[in-house]
Design a protein around this nucleic acid. Structure first.
Length: 875
RNA sequence: GGUCCAGUGGUGGAACUGGUAUACACGAGAGACUUAAAAUCUCUUGAGGGCAACCUCAUGUGGGUUCGACUCCCACCUGGACCACCA
């Protein structure tokens, strides 16, 4: 018999599959559909290491099983090729990003191809293809028109090394997720997407996703970070000394102004309002620059605020460091619940980006305020009585209100409710919700990304202003209107006199409807570092005609972030060549949503948040007909290097799949990666383990000759059938629940039994091949053609997935376990149908059991059908 | 600091809904084949005691519930992931 030679078998079958087109996606409506998807990779220059394909192998195994179960399976692959990694690689290697990307894609494709995946390459997509990003731009434009994209000049995260602004999601502990540089805060003109408008729905709809892993949902919940509480207004006045001075000098005007001045705060603990003894503003707070004349120590305050703003996020967010701040001399705030005058500080422990950028400080019941108050000698008042309280510590839990007027005696939840009611009645506060998630900073100052389909027109800017002036539309109202997700229907647009909501919010910016707006060729695509994208240098591209008035206009020169294309790419696989619409509604009804999505957990708060946001928006505008994109979600556990560290060039511990395939074969690698451990858990690579997988396949190979010998004898053991059918059952169920490691160990048990058995029938062997085929497709296809008969199909993947016979998996004889006082004392083989009476009788008659029951009385006998008898004895 | 997850042999790990703990694989040891090695095959392999039947102990630690706990409850220890001055 020929030896198992993967080098011969594997290329042969891959060629055969390519030519026969067996993996072309079928669309016959007579079959049910199954859409299984991997998170598509960005093709970096380093190529694949053995860890990358783990998820792809899993989806391939699952998809192949579904094929054999009679489904049309859509299992596509594409490339997330825009973005910083591709561009940085191109810069380092002095080639155009497009060329580098093409080359990298070719490498990736070659590497993936040799693993024998079922990808239908006719559906390949690439986010950098103008025919693809045309629709990325289209989605942006739809958001822009509805006021969900807006221009902002807020300070944002700036990576000094990548020379671009970054979204909150792109940071890791205050560092750039890509290059590890400490991120600075820099005020810059940015396009921002109003993801916060969808925060509530994204949170609520997690309930609709029972087949998502709990851990991923939890991460999203934390990222969205909903807090419920109240917003409260604290009036601001001049301090007593200043008031006297004012009236002496008769400057007179502050009396009018003070009515309007107030500090708005958000708190989750309105029940502690009586304990608010000072206030703190974030260094970025508007009041500071607006009240220069009123703040007596303005120089000092300004210096503190400026210094704080300059600090990197990482320094500012250091929890360990001592809190600092400066009092705003000359002004006071009034605690509205007791009319006390309280001091106002600026301090960098208050964040501009959360809540209102100002807090009421309750040092009695907030650790941070407590620390600050001790340092600056501020009043600390107990307003919540703790059940247990440690001296000298601050109690931030729930209890009963004290020293709190009308709240006294109420528990914290009651007090919160009552305070909110009181605030609303007086009109100085209201129930309020705050989210941690921030709007999505959507522009990058780099070359290799989708251009924005926007032009800036001075004329239309004035026209918009005129329009607002004549129609008396309050821009503030429009802004709050835009926060609701359903803002901006086509009808609204008409009523606004031809201006879209986006244009009203971003005067002068006009959407370019002629798509795609293609990325121009440039001489120098290095980032400028000035906050301008390299595109700004291409005069002939920048200068354009205003799509609205036809006059001179300038294009937006920032580009979109890498996350743009990946936020909707899964829709494109349904109909990748459609140039009329983002999705073909007919096809969409068949394929979508994605039934099963597999990828890394690191995307829980990035890609998966963005994709859900875009999808919900597309649902709202009627572009898709369902509101969650991914029905089932499973995360892949990393494959670590043999030394237990992440595989990385830096540690020189990377294992290249090409070498493994060459030496042991793709099938051995596939089986090993699925066998290593629980799918979602990180496991270290171990080449010895791989050899074990290879040996297993060799045993399967050798069984072939046993079948041929057995054929005439017609020997078919009952025992083997029993195990075979149990294995069919377990493998099917385990693949279904992504427990590949136990599926494989069960097949190993079966193969060991088959090897040891007296005879092996062809049917038994064929059933084994069918359930192993998704894991080791080349080997099983080869063996299948050798043992199949004329009437059987040419490819094993056209065969039906075997069904187990419930009769055959029943055990006739079982091992009855007998326990005495909880300890196993005997095991007796009995008929599976044994009655309770009889089982108990057999148990009590056992010699081993008698040793333990002798001279004692049986107090209780527990019987578990088909399993055990538990005897409880007492002296 | 918050949220979540995990802790089982020398190693990766298995154990359904509370019912034989350590399946399967790796590694190690012994043997067969071989001039020899590799490959392959067979046996042993949680710890301790015993010639053996068998007994005792063992799923991070300590308690609890139960006839019975890796599994459920409480407290603690250790490790990991994500978030983090989020008011």
């Amino acid at each position: 018999m020929a030896k198992y030679n993967h080098k011969e078998i594997e290329p042969k079958w891959r060629k055969n599959w390519d030519e026969s087109g067996i993996y072309k996606t079928g669309e016959g409506k007579d079959k049910p559909k199954y859409y299984i998807l991997d998170m598509f990779p960005y093709p970096s220059g380093a190529g694949l290491h053995v860890g990358h394909p783990k998820g792809y192998i899993a989806t391939d195994v699952y998809g192949r099983m579904r094929m054999m179960q009679g489904y049309n399976v859509l299992h596509p692959m594409g490339w997330d090729a825009f973005g910083l990694p591709a561009e940085n690689f191109a810069l380092a290697n002095k080639v155009h990003p497009r060329i580098a990307t093409e080359k990298n894609i070719a490498t990736f494709k070659k590497q993936l191809a040799q693993l024998g995946f079922t990808y239908d390459w006719e559906r390949e997509i690439n986010t950098t293809d103008p025919e693809f990003y045309k629709w990325t731009q289209w989605i942006f434009l739809e958001m822009f028109k509805r006021g969900l994209a807006y221009e902002s000049r807020e300070p944002i995260n700036w990576c000094p090394s990548c020379k671009t602004g970054l979204a909150n999601e792109d940071l890791e502990n205050g560092r750039c997720e890509r290059c590890g540089s400490v991120v600075e805060k820099k005020p810059m003109r940015q396009w921002v997407l109003k993801i916060t408008a969808y925060a509530e729905r994204m949170l609520d709809d997690l309930e609709k996703l029972p087949d998502w892993e709990e851990s991923i949902k939890e991460m999203q919940k934390n990222w969205i970070g909903k807090s419920e509480g109240a917003s409260i207004k604290f009036p601001v006045i001049l301090s007593a000394a200043e008031r006297n001075e004012e009236s002496r000098e008769e400057t007179g005007s502050f009396a009018d102004a003070q009515d309007d001045v107030s500090i708005k705060v958000f708190t989750t603990r309105p029940d502690t309002l009586f304990g608010a003894t000072y206030m703190v503003l974030a260094p970025e707070h508007e009041l500071i620059k607006n009240y220069e004349l009123r703040i007596k120590n303005y120089g000092e305050v300004k210096k503190y605020a400026e210094d704080a703003k300059k600090k990197s996020e990482i320094d500012r967010a250091d929890v360990q460091k001592e809190k600092t701040g400066v009092e705003l001399k000359g002004v006071k705030a009034i605690n509205p619940v007791n009319n006390e005058e309280i001091p106002v500080f600026v301090a960098d422990y208050v964040l501009a980006g959360y809540g209102t950028g100002a807090i009421m400080a309750v040092p009695g019941h907030d650790e941070r305020d407590f620390e600050f108050a001790k340092k600056y000698g501020l009043a600390i008042r107990e307003v919540v009585k703790a059940e247990k309280k440690n001296d000298g510590e601050c109690f931030s839990g729930e209890g009963v209100s004290v020293n709190s007027g009308f709240l006294d005696g109420l528990t914290t939840p009651e007090a919160k409710k009552k305070m909110i009611f009181w605030l609303e009645e007086k009109g100085i506060g209201k129930k309020s919700v705050s989210y941690k998630i921030k709007d999505w900073v959507f522009s990058r100052q780099r070359y290799w990304g989708e251009p924005f389909p926007l032009a800036y027109c001075e004329h239309c800017k004035n026209a918009v202003d005129d329009f607002i002036a004549t129609s008396k539309i309050d821009l503030g109202k429009i802004r709050s209107f835009a926060s609701s997700a359903d803002a901006g229907s086509a009808q609204d647009d008409r009523e606004r006199g031809g201006f879209t909501l986006g244009e009203l919010l971003n005067p002068g910016w006009i959407g370019v409807d002629e798509l795609p707006v293609t990325l121009p060729e440039v001489e120098h695509y290095e980032p400028t570092g000035t906050g301008e994208s390299p595109l700004a240098n291409i005069v002939e591209w920048v200068n354009t005609k205003c799509p609205k008035c036809g006059g001179a206009a300038k294009r937006e020169t920032n580009t979109m972030p890498q996350w743009a294309g990946s936020s909707w790419y899964y829709l494109r696989f349904e109909d990748p060549k459609n140039d009329q619409a983002l999705v073909n509604k007919e096809k969409e009804k068949y394929w979508s949503p994605v039934d099963f999505y597999v990828g890394g957990a690191e995307h829980a708060t990035r890609h998966l948040i963005y994709a859900r946001f875009w999808h919900k928006f597309l649902y709202d505008i009627g572009a898709v007909s369902y509101d969650e994109p991914f029905t089932r979600l499973q995360h892949v556990g990393l494959i670590l290097a043999e030394d237990g560290r992440k595989m990385s060039k830096r540690w020189n511990n990377v294992i290249n799949p090409d070498e493994i395939v060459e030496k042991y074969g793709a099938d051995a690698m596939r089986v090993y990666e699925m066998f290593m451990g629980p799918f979602s858990q990180p496991v270290a690579w171990n080449t010895n383990g791989l050899i074990g997988a290879r040996k297993f396949l060799e045993r399967v190979w050798k069984l072939k000759s046993k079948v041929q010998k057995s054929e005439s004898q017609k020997s078919r053991s009952q025992k083997l059938d029993n195990l075979l059918h149990k294995t069919i059952k377990k493998v099917g169920e385990d693949i279904e629940s992504f427990k590949f490691n136990t599926a494989i160990s069960q097949m190993m048990i079966l193969v060991n039994e088959m090897t040891a058995a007296d005879g092996l029938s062809k049917e038994q062997y064929q059933a084994l091949l069918k359930i192993l085929a998704p894991f080791a497709p080349h080997l099983c296809e080869e063996l299948w053609t050798e043992v199949r008969s004329e009437k059987e199909l040419e490819s094993i993947f056209n065969e039906e997935w075997p069904k187990y016979d419930p009769e055959l998996i029943k055990d006739e004889i079982i091992e009855l376990v007998i326990q005495v006082n909880g300890k196993v004392r005997d095991m007796i083989s009995v008929d599976a149908e044994v009655s309770e009476e009889e089982a108990k009788k057999i148990a009590l008659e056992s010699e081993n059991v008698k040793k333990w029951t002798k001279g004692k009385r049986a107090e209780k006998i527990v019987y578990v059908k088909g399993k055990l008898v538990s005897i409880v004895v007492k002296d």
